[in-house]
Write a protein that binds this DNA or RNA. Structure first.
Lengths: 198, 198
DNA sequence: GCAATCAAGATACGGACCGTATCTTGCGGA
DNA sequence: TCCGCAAGATACGGTCCGTATCTTGATTGC
């Protein structure tokens, strides 16, 4: 918001200031009120400076959200596939809440016509979750003997994340009871049908 | 597009002309290019006339899509819960395709902050599908003895539609193989776990 | 320590579209 | 036939887009 005189920022410092301003702007104004003009003004700089770094609002929004995302999260080993799955879904939900329902939908909409931006969004918001599910939750279950990796299908490998994403997109929040119903009524039965003993 | 001289339309005729223009505009210009100005011009009328009927672009878009939606669809009785479920998901997918991925996301985004518009969208695009699932597919399965109604949970009653919606929102299309994997790898196993014999 | 260079930052532009107000004019009902 | 109402045309202030232009501060190489 400030920025009146004195030193002229450059490089990383400037970039970080813009990302911070973008995130605050997003939090306060929401997705609809998130404009390049607003970001520039709040960062105490001007539109061209912002445009030199990000070509449109989706990309800077993705960038500033990614910047706020906890790095290198892990899923705790709860000792059972069920517990781990609940933990992963909860973690996924926390991440989605950081973005918010409206923004998530807006970003998806903006991105759905642009393969490049789409790729960026998926890499930022989806890939890490999928990796966590496969490399932590499912891999541990295989080690425990609860599950055989070869029995998993593409669909089952995505299922928990698909379900929590759907829930978040439609309702904007996912209660603990919802998480449990996803796991107990859908995910575990589907895995059992593929030979899992959970 | 036309509309040059002569008769001045009123009431239903005018409304229908605007809805038709809106749908064509939407098909040609896409969601991003769908503007009130464009609709008015294509309908050969002016913005105030459009605004008198619909307060914003989401509402007129919902209205013109609803206007094009097949009325009173039914799910064929294929003789088995599996077949009926596949049929319902396919039907749901056809409906979603009429709207298109980008528009679906855009509408969801526009609507996610406005409870009133949200209700309208849900009533238009979701409620009928849910009814079909419950009143045709599941009810028939209960009659056949494949399923007991009391064993169904809220989650299971929504599951097929949730999964196809998620698939459509993320990928924009749902292949036949995808439909079958949803049914065979997730829905049926989940129902079996609740005592279904399918 | 100085000059050349390069990006920051300010400003302004044309353009699109928003949503609303105002006005006139044709249509339909009484 | 005339009255009233809504259709339709037009214009407005406003916001934001994305870009071009210009000045000026900071950095870097000498």
């Amino acid at each position: 918001m400030e920025r009146k005189v004195a030193s002229r920022r450059r490089g990383k410092a400037l970039e970080q200031a813009i990302l911070d301003a973008a995130f605050e702007e997003f939090r306060e104004a929401g997705y609809a009120g998130f404009t390049m003009e607003g970001v520039a003004k709040r960062a105490g700089t001007s539109k061209p400076v912002v445009y030199r770094r990000w070509p449109n609002r989706v990309e800077i929004l993705i960038a500033c959200v990614a910047d706020r995302l906890p790095k290198a999260e892990t899923v705790p080993d709860t000792g059972s596939l069920r517990g781990d799955t609940v933990a992963l879904i909860t973690l996924a939900h926390r991440r989605m809440q950081l973005v918010g329902q409206t923004a998530m939908l807006g970003m998806l909409a903006d991105v759905s016509a642009d393969p490049e931006a789409r790729e960026l969004l998926v890499a930022t918001l989806v890939k890490e979750l999928t990796n966590l599910l496969e490399e932590a939750v499912y891999a541990r279950a295989v080690k425990r003997g609860e599950l055989e990796w070869e029995h998993l299908t593409e669909r089952l490998r995505r299922l928990p994340i698909d379900l929590v994403r759907n829930e978040f997109i439609i309702f904007g929040a996912v209660s603990e009871a919802t998480v449990e119903s996803i796991v107990d009524e859908v995910v575990l039965p589907a895995l059992r049908a593929r030979g899992a003993s959970v």
